[in-house]
């Protein structure tokens, strides 16, 4: 198998007394698309929020286990957590443009990294807007508020913004669920190109989407990992009874 980028080992998570994640073990290969598939409420989003430690914000979360990123346990790191987060771009369900111009949305993360001045920022902003396939549509209106873009454009802006901090991993939480079909396929196609340089983790409940873009599929149900396998194996020869039922559409 390929090199492992993230290795999740014996991960458990509780919110108060409620157990959300149960003994999770997942190996996420480098520069591939790993799709986490499962019905709503199975803990996919929480798992993703644990990977970049956004779950810290919820005061009542209790975690045990390890998440190894390049050999470092990020749940117990002594490093500044903001540096760990910069390694992972996040794309959420609804686009979350920051309340500023298109240019500044992309420049935001760069400025946090200490790159200052419009002249220095310019080439970065252009590069990443091109990378997210948005440049042609916005190059003449970079100073407009980001909120004036269409939803699909906003999501691509969020992608560009995430890429700008040069992450190694892209975490995408149902990134196409609020988009029209055309914008959704633009984002999907973008993922195809991006996996040459990035490790992509995609959370979704759309099976066809998983089939289209996944290299590796993890199936979760009610906080447990039921099955994980390369995409062909997963869809053509599922091992677990529950996986087969889910693929048949028996439950969502």
């Amino acid at each position: 198998m390929e090199d492992t980028k993230i290795s999740i080992q014996n991960l458990n998570l509780w919110f108060g007394k409620l157990k959300i994640l149960n003994e999770i073990n997942i190996e996420i290969p480098e520069k591939k698309v790993t799709v986490i598939l499962g019905p709503s409420g199975c803990g996919k989003t929480t798992l993703m929020r644990t990977m970049n430690r956004l779950v810290d914000l919820q005061g009542n979360a209790k975690i045990s286990g390890k998440i190894m990123l390049d050999g470092e346990d990020i749940l117990n790191t002594k490093r500044d957590i903001t540096l760990v987060r910069q390694k992972m771009g996040l794309l959420s369900q609804r686009p979350t443009t920051l309340p500023m111009s298109i240019f500044n949305n992309v420049a935001y993360g760069l400025r946090l990294k200490g790159i200052r001045g419009r002249k220095k920022l310019w080439p970065h902003v252009e590069k990443h807007l091109i990378e997210a396939n948005l440049w042609d549509e916005v190059k003449d209106r970079l100073n407009d508020p980001a909120s004036r873009l269409s939803i699909g454009q906003q999501q691509r802006l969020c992608l560009a913004r995430g890429l700008a901090v040069s992450p190694e991993i892209i975490l995408a939480d149902e990134p196409t669920s609020s988009l029209d079909p055309i914008s959704a396929s633009v984002i999907e196609n973008q993922f195809f190109k991006l996996k040459e340089n990035y490790t992509i983790v995609l959370v979704t409940h759309i099976m066809r989407q998983a089939k289209r873009i996944a290299d590796y599929v993890v199936f979760m149900y009610l906080g447990d990992v039921i099955e994980q396998a390369p995409v062909d194996e997963f869809f053509n020869n599922p091992q677990h009874k529950m996986t087969r039922e889910y693929l048949r559409g028996a439950f969502y």
């Binding site: 956004l54 914000l57 903001t82 540096l83 996040l90 959420s92 979350t96 993360g109």
Partner: peptide, 21 residues
């Protein structure tokens, strides 16, 4: 909350997020 998350995931601290976003 999503907006807060977005800023944090770009490497902002809590105070930077409050100030800028």
């Amino acid at each position: 909350q999503d907006l807060f998350d977005a800023s944090l995931s770009l490497g902002a601290s809590k105070w930077q997020t409050i100030k800028h976003v």
